[in-house]
Structure formats: structure tokens, C-alpha cells
Amino acid sequence: MPRWGMAVDLDRCNGCAACVVACHAENNISTVGADEAARGRAKHWLRIERYWEGEFPDVRLTFRPVLCQHCDNAPCEPVCPTYASHHTEDGLNAQVYNRCIGTRYCANACPYNVRFFDFFNPSWDKPLHLQLNPDVSLREAGVMEKCTFCVQRIQAAGTQASAEEREVQDGEIQPACVQSCPSKALVFGDLDDPGSRVSQLSRSPRGSKLLEDVGTRPKITYLARQSQA
């Protein structure tokens, strides 16, 4: 059984936000409009964070794409009274929308701020609905939604591979953010396969986990941005 994870090379990432829109397009994430966005209700399963250092003119900025870290020791899971937030066998922090009753305990427990509550039923001004991805279910009002590592793509690749009686190849599965990234900053794959690109990158001396000290054991490794030697 694979254990899915990701490596994010902050030395390649340049903050272009292609991944942010790719995620919306793939996962049927509805836009909420300016008024609701001002109330903090916009949903971005993946966001670009900025870390400013220094004062003018010696300013330095580092971008960091932040999405669900798919923690091995996820604080969102034990707090869910309905097991909507749970751990799958292949290591995803999954959210079963039909089980979710909207307590939002998981969002309170998550240190990464990557869970989003649906305050409304999703709506698309027709015919924008024609773009919807039929492989991803729509979330109704009152449930939490979050990054799934594009589980629909993981499953499709698994089905395809088993139909062809073979294993899923490394690099065969690309979540939407990984696929869109122009500078190839994001790498997805099986952490339990020591030969996979993501495992190799995760062992890099530049690697670290986000908020490692809180003990969540994230499956996303950030490779530090380097400085001029």
C-alpha cells in the first residue's frame, strides 16, 4: 500500500499562483464573491504564503505554497465526532462530506489553516457549471472541505494500472497543482517507495516539515530556499 506525500522545492517556487487556480478548476471549488471573501469565507485549498524579511532596500521574500499537510498524526482526525475526517490506508487525510455534520472541530484543531467551511450551497452562474469536474463531488452548506491530494486522480491511475495488470508508476499521478506548476516545484508520489522522486527529495538535507514541532508528522516536505553562496 503506497503512502502518498509531496515535496515542495521553495527554491523553484516563484509564487506564480498557477497551482491556486488549477486547484479550483480541478476540485469544483466555488468562488464566494467579494463580500463573503471579506468575511473570510473564500476557499483556497492551496494558498501562497509570503515571508518578508528585512527593511527597504534590503528586502527578501520567500513564497510558500501551503495546502493540507496530510499529517500522519493529524490533529483534525481524532476530534471529529462522525469520523468524517479520517485517515485512509494510503495515508491521506480524507474528508467524507456525507458524514460531516459541520462541527468545525477539525478546522479548530488544524494548525495549518487549510480546512474550509462551506457557508453556502455552491452555486455557479450558468453556464459556468459546464466546467465542473464530474469526478469530484460538490460540497453542500454545512460541511468542511479540504485538499484531497486529488484523490480522484489517484484512484483513476490505480484503476488504470490494475486494468493493465501493473503497478502505478512513479510520476504517473499528478495532482492538479503539480501538473500545472511551470517550474516543477511540486513533486508527488509514494513515500514508502525509496526510489520515488518524492522520497528522494524528502530525504534532502534542505528538507523540513511545516510546524514540525507540534508533532503532526506531515507528509509534505519543504525544501528550503537557498541563499547566494
Binding site: A18, A22, P127, L128, S180, P182
Partner: peptide
């Protein structure tokens, strides 16, 4: 690769 704008171009076709 495809940039953020390119990803959103599909909304031109389906724009209400």
C-alpha cells in the same frame, strides 16, 4: 506547465 491565467481561460467559454 500552465499559468494561473491559462488555467482560468476555460471560464471565457462558459462565462454567463
Amino acid at each position: 506547465g500552465l499559468c494561473a491565467r491559462g488555467q482560468a481561460a476555460i471560464q471565457i467559454t462558459y462565462h454567463p
